[in-house]
């Protein structure tokens, strides 16, 4: 395959010399060298992205380790779970883990459901204020979220919602990005489906729920994965709207203790607990995640 292409290249460039055979040989050697160079580069980069996580896992399973020093034994002897025992019995990690799971699940569910609803209205509905609201939403999507962090806290503190799940979930309960994504999906479904159902006596909710929603499952999966990961990894907003340690999400909780610089084994055990949920979701739903990113170029 490769040599055939190389031959074609030689021929088409009109340089079929008498030393054709040696040219082909040196080309093959050159290609092999280039290939080896490419592979070693790609492997080195992969080692840099995967290596730190391997070391993280290894250190978390090591007995009584204060610092991470090189050279390191990747498989500790003995392998111990005592760091995880300490983590769950002596720190708030378990509470944070529960907070994160609860907040991310409700946020994801809410965001996906409201996106399919609003997307339906914007794709099919004719109502007053439609284009105005649509333009406003587009404007928000373009806005840098960090600029609003202070006034969002001000509003939540006036509503006495600081340190509540409502504050952590609230802004995630609707997704403008998701609304646009779903609207695109509805626009790809012929209106004949709606019309046929309406002729049969269905109302808008029945059309939405029974006719159109089943056709949106792949897009909903994509959005759900993006939202869950986005919420799990969110840092600034949950940091600002919680101040009590028992209301922190895992990401924020780990972030606030990271610099206390205690036992490396305990720190890495916390890191592993923060790492595994998104890692498993990535393994399970890699297809949806990558599809979502390459389709839209956006996360969450």
């Amino acid at each position: 395959m490769e040599t055939a292409r190389a031959r074609g290249r030689l021929r088409s460039s009109g340089k079929a010399r008498p030393e054709w055979r040696t040219a082909r040989l040196s080309l093959r050697v050159g290609q092999a060298l280039e290939r080896a160079a490419v592979y070693s580069f790609l492997l080195a980069v992969a080692a840099s992205t995967v290596g730190p996580f391997l070391i993280m896992v290894s250190v978390s399973l090591t007995h009584n380790i204060r610092f991470i020093t090189f050279p390191i034994k990747l498989i500790p002897n003995p392998v111990t779970l005592e760091n995880f025992q300490t983590l769950f019995s002596k720190t708030m990690a378990l509470r944070w883990l529960w907070n994160s799971f609860f907040v991310a699940s409700v946020s994801t569910l809410g965001g996906v459901v409201t996106s399919t609803m609003a997307g339906y209205a914007f794709a099919r509905g004719q109502f007053w204020g439609r284009s105005l609201i649509f333009t406003l939403f587009l404007g928000i999507l373009m806005m840098p979220s960090t600029a609003l962090i202070v006034p969002q806290f001000v509003v939540l503190s006036r509503l006495h919602l600081v340190n509540t799940y409502a504050a952590l979930i609230g802004p995630w309960f609707a997704s403008i990005f998701g609304t646009f994504l779903m609207r695109q999906q509805y626009l790809g479904i012929p209106r004949d489906y709606d019309d046929a159902a309406i002729v049969d006596g269905a109302n808008l909710w029945q059309v939405y729920y029974k006719v159109l929603l089943p056709q949106l499952k792949p897009a909903m999966a994509t959005l759900a994965v993006l939202r869950f990961m986005g919420n799990w990894n969110d840092f600034l907003y949950p940091l600002v709207v919680t101040s009590k340690a028992n209301m922190r999400t895992l990401t924020v909780g780990l972030g606030t203790v990271a610099r206390s610089g205690g036992d490396a084994g305990l720190d890495m055990a916390g890191a592993v607990v923060g790492f595994l949920p998104t890692f498993f979701l990535f393994l399970l739903a890699q297809r949806y995640l990558i599809q979502g990113i390459t389709l839209t170029g956006l996360k969450g």
Binding site: V45, A46, T49, V50, P52, F53, I55, M56, F67, I68, T69, F70, I72, M229, W232, N233, F235, L250, T251, V252, G253, L254, G255, A258, R259, G261, A264, D267, M268, G270, A271, G274, F275, T278, F279, L281, F282, L289, I290
Partner: peptide, 28 residues
């Protein structure tokens, strides 16, 4: 493999790299 750091929360990354980038000469 290259996408892995991107799905990981910033706290986990920082926990690991605070240790990796320690000024100790024997830090990674």
């Amino acid at each position: 493999a290259y996408f892995l750091p991107n799905i990981t929360s910033i706290s986990v990354i920082c926990l690991v790299f605070l240790r990796f980038l320690s000024p100790r000469p024997d830090a990674p």
